[in-house]
């Protein structure tokens, strides 16, 4: 287990490094930070001065390692637009996004795992059909449109929920539903197929041949095995969700990291964008790392070699 953890950790670090390099290179190649920084009215001489002052004229690798070194120390540079530390800015916005993410993944799991299990227990039953319908809908529903429709029908027509802001928990209901419903279909399908697969295994037959009661067979023997891949998927979906929060936060005016991303992209605020990509990626990497550990811990075949 220790060896496995270390190996996995090294991989995670390598992935993080590569991602940071790619995102740095991408933004470096696709724009001239000096122009962005100087603003639209600046003269060529001003731009040149800024370029030299901030070292934008050095080779990309030098700049990258410079940036990386500071990033490792928690310094992601200064925002061109807000004129504050990017790390502080992100740190300020992250809690909202995290709250949203946790609510949404919880909602998604609570919706899709029971539904997936129920669908697998009775294939082709009404429950199975409902589950299939919901997942097909969920996969085809553009989240931005779903969000707007919710606003139009729930907030405005029925006056049930607030439409924007993040003051009360009520403000989180619609964003949670939109974001969660986006992640639910994949989790539901995996739960269903996983359960179906496990239910047809020899060891489930053994459990039934031992006379165990159906709930024990289903929830102890079957679910325990079927849930292992679902854990990984939920972690992956959680990571995707944070990336997807940009759409939802923009629509519901939730001032989280996603909203910040949209603001800084429209304002060409490169250091903030770069910082956000790094933070989101790191988050995904950490998540999948822990998911793998949980996985290994849940599956004795990996845990005990």
């Amino acid at each position: 287990m220790l060896y496995y953890t270390l190996k996995r950790l090294a991989l995670a670090a390598l992935v993080a490094l590569t991602v940071s390099f790619i995102s740095f290179g991408l933004l470096y190649l696709s724009s001239d930070p000096a122009i962005a920084m100087a603003g639209e009215t600046a003269s060529d001489a001003d731009i040149e001065a800024i370029r030299q002052l901030y070292g934008f004229d050095r080779p990309i690798l030098v700049q990258y390692f410079d940036w990386l070194q500071r990033a490792a120390a928690g310094d992601l540079g200064k925002s061109y637009y807000f004129r504050t530390d990017v790390s502080a800015l992100i740190g300020e916005r992250l809690p909202t996004t995290m709250t949203l993410g946790v609510c949404a993944i919880t909602f998604a799991i609570l919706l899709s795992v029971p539904l997936g299990v129920a669908a697998a227990i009775r294939p082709n039953s009404l429950v199975d059909r409902i589950a299939l319908f919901l997942s097909v809908m969920g996969q085809a529903l553009p989240s931005f449109w779903f969000a707007l429709m919710l606003i139009v029908f729930l907030s405005v027509s029925l006056r049930l929920l607030p439409t924007s802001g993040s003051d009360t928990w009520l403000h989180f209901v619609m964003p949670t539903v939109v974001l969660g419903y986006y992640a639910a279909p994949a989790i539901m399908r995996l739960t269903r197929t996983g359960m179906l697969e496990v239910l047809s295994t020899d060891y489930i037959r053994t459990a039934r041949a031992k006379g165990l009661r159906p709930p024990v067979v289903l929830f102890k023997h079957a679910l325990r095995n079927a849930i292992i891949p679902v854990v990984s998927l939920a972690a992956v979906q959680f990571g995707f969700m944070l990336g997807g929060s940009i759409v939802v936060e923009t629509i519901f005016a939730l001032h989280g990291a996603g909203f910040l991303a949209w603001e800084s992209i429209t304002r060409n605020d490169l250091p903030t964008v770069q910082g956000l990509i790094l933070v989101f990626s790191l988050f995904y990497i950490v998540l999948t790392f822990f998911a793998d550990l949980i996985n290994a811990w849940l599956d004795p075949r990996i845990r005990i070699k």
């Binding site: 295994t201 020899d202 060891y203 037959r205 053994t206 459990a207 039934r208 041949a209 031992k210 006379g211 165990l212 009661r213 159906p214 102890k220 023997h221 325990r224 095995n225 849940l298 599956d299 004795p300 075949r301």
Partner: peptide, 28 residues
Amino acid sequence: SEKQMSNVRGNKMGMIFQEPMSSLNPSF
């Protein structure tokens, strides 16, 4: 009934299967 049968299975009659490799639950 299924319930009565499950009281019999594993109790009054038991079964051993062909595949020892997959007949036991890997998680317990």
